[in-house]
């Protein structure tokens, strides 16, 4: 396939098309930030209602898994960045390898979060409801915390699954990309890092603030 930067009829140039696509994904990411905003606001509301009980719930979370998962997502953003640089420098095969590595790290995140951590939380009776295991004066606040925890991590996990699907699509279309024509690789990379950024906010809200004195 020739490495000529073509563009659709409605754009003045390939660069115009690229700039429009990048502005479009940033507009989408801005709307995603507002999508997660009310979830962060619910954390503020729920915690201020009863800080000590809310923090008691937060201290039940598995900090080790939280730290490992944060490192996994940072590494996956790094891997995707190297994959993007690979196609920009003309190595399609290296791009595929690094994107597969980024996917593997994303899958490891999902496995730890939902296969290990959620399972452990559910076995410990930490899902809000009649069978919630924490008793006493902190029960209601801790239930509020775990409602936030399960909802926010499920929503983040859903975004990560969408991201995995997009990266898999990029890998399947790898033959189309060249150093001059790789805007979809760039755009999916922006979404991939955005998922990382959402986790960088959720991580302290879930694991750290409740443990801080």
């Amino acid at each position: 396939m020739s490495d000529v930067a073509t563009h659709e009829f409605q754009f003045a140039s390939a660069e115009h098309q690229r700039e429009t696509a990048i502005s479009g994904i940033w507009l989408f990411l801005a709307s995603e930030a507002l999508f997660f905003g009310p979830i962060f606001l619910s954390w503020i509301y729920a915690r201020l209602a009863d800080p000590s009980a809310f923090d008691a719930g937060a201290r039940q979370t598995d900090l080790t898994i939280g730290i490992v998962n944060t490192a996994l997502l940072i590494a996956s953003s790094f891997a995707y960045g190297v994959g993007l640089a690979s196609i920009q420098f003309g190595s399609r095969r290296r791009m595929v390898v690094w994107l597969l590595f980024a996917c593997t790290l994303g899958l490891a995140f999902l496995g730890l979060k939902f296969g290990v951590e959620w399972r452990s939380d559910l076995e410990k009776g930490l899902f809000p409801g009649a069978n919630f295991s924490i008793q006493g004066p902190t029960r209601n606040g801790a239930q509020l915390f775990f409602a936030f925890y399960f909802f926010s991590t499920a929503l983040h996990g859903l975004h990560l699954i969408v991201g995995l699907g997009l990266v898999a699509w990029i890998i399947s279309q790898a033959r189309q990309f060249t150093p001059k024509r790789h805007t979809p690789v760039l755009i999916v990379g922006l979404y991939w890092t955005f998922i990382d950024i959402i986790w960088l906010v959720l991580f302290p809200l879930i694991y750290l603030i409740g443990r801080a004195s």
Binding site: W26, L27, L29, L34, L41, I44
Partner: peptide
């Protein structure tokens, strides 16, 4: 355009979280 959108996202988030937190 990208800078404007990124700044707008931060501004909207600040309004949402700032005004939303005033009550509690």
């Amino acid at each position: 355009p990208v800078w404007l959108l990124a700044a707008a996202a931060l501004l909207w988030l600040a309004i949402l979280l700032g005004l939303g937190s005033l009550d509690p």
